[in-house]
Design a protein around this nucleic acid. Structure first.
Lengths: 206, 206
DNA sequence: GTCATCATGTAAGCCGTTACATGATTGC
DNA sequence: GCAATCATGTAACGGCTTACATGATGAC
């Protein structure tokens, strides 16, 4: 139930409607997920979200030729057609999804949920979508992550000083430590930005 | 067949014998793998490696009290006991594994194999074990990774300049780019070290 | 007419996890 | 005697991938 992909899809649909094929590139380009998610994950995820009422398929008329309701298609065929974009000039058959109210609720609760483990991937996904969080939830998320990283940093620094390790293993430890330090700087910057913004709304509250 | 855990286990066994319980902490402390691997992965992996002849269970006498061959245990029971460490004072019942010649061959080929994808985790695992690679294979591994990262860096920099993204999403992109830059510095340092070491063996070859 | 790209979907498999089950040894 | 830690294993499940199957459209 803690699927990273669900958060990503719902997050993209918060902004505007999407069809499955498009979601793959958007996840990479807008949410900074390094690898392309496979279609074998995306389509089942969309169907599941639809079954749960978090998204719904919609009819779009974005194509130039608007060939809807030409009448001759009967029963099953017609309804399937209706769920897809008009196959007019310049557009292929596609199924466009829109997020529902229920989906929006689900999304914000998933995004803030402290139960879902914070590996670096889910954390950076959450931050990429952080504009949908309240300031206090953003701060909570950042501080939670910060605590974890401080602990990790100590472990990696200890490893990098372990003289039983060969130079390569120590180098990996030292590099990992630097990576964690970089993460911490980033988080601290984000946290101070959050605090400055909060002051904007309560400037005299010294 | 390209299991990261197999490389990790075989790599640890290259140094000395280990039992399963111990491998978990060693993977973390010596190979810089951030999360603790679960026992539900380790024990099946060891059994599989044993079936394939890459490791073998050995009898160790590291305990003080050497209570082997007390005679009264019969058949099945006795042979099972023989595979475990002597349950003397100060030692628990454990199954200690040793890498075989076949396992050593498998290990070095897995470690250098360019077919197994290089995400950052498998890459840093390989580097942590890089002392078992020939200098030329080390350089090849580093350069292969370098190429991938240069490409990734361009993508992340492009994302961080994308003005359609909100500040949070752009911040994630910019931070990811910094992380890749740090990785590249590290790799370039390792590469120059490799070249200096090679010069040591051919100093006049200007 | 055929190739590349766009587009949607299913089935099988991989590699890991959590949860469960068992038991020996040590420290209190 | 009881809890904590050490130690080994199995079963079920989870989320992702690859491979497969299908078909429309546009460019050449």
């Amino acid at each position: 139930m803690f699927r990273m992909l669900d958060i990503a899809i719902l997050g993209l649909l918060m902004e505007r409607d999407h069809h499955g094929y498009e979601i793959r590139t958007q996840v990479r380009d807008r949410l900074a997920v390094s690898a392309n998610i496979s279609f074998g994950s995306i389509y089942p995820a969309l169907n599941r979200l639809e079954r749960h009422g978090h998204v719904e398929a919609v009819i779009t008329n974005e194509a130039r030729g608007n060939a809807l309701s030409t009448g001759s298609l009967s029963g099953e065929r017609a309804s399937l057609r209706a769920l897809r974009a008009t196959p007019g000039i310049g557009r292929r058959s596609r199924k466009v999804y829109r997020i529902t109210d229920r989906g929006r609720e689900e999304f914000v609760s998933l995004l803030a949920d402290p139960a879902t483990l914070d590996d670096s991937r889910t954390f950076s996904l959450r931050i990429a979508l952080a504009k949908y969080l309240t300031p206090s939830r953003r701060v909570a998320l950042l501080e939670r992550r910060r605590t974890d990283l401080v602990e990790r940093l100590a472990e990696m620094l200890a490893g990098s000083r372990n003289e039983q390790l060969d130079t390569y293993a120590r180098s990996v430890m030292a590099h990992a430590a630097k990576g964690v330090e970089l993460d911490l700087e980033w988080i601290d910057n984000l946290l101070s930005t959050e605090r400055n913004n909060q002051q904007t709304f309560a400037p005299e509250a010294k």
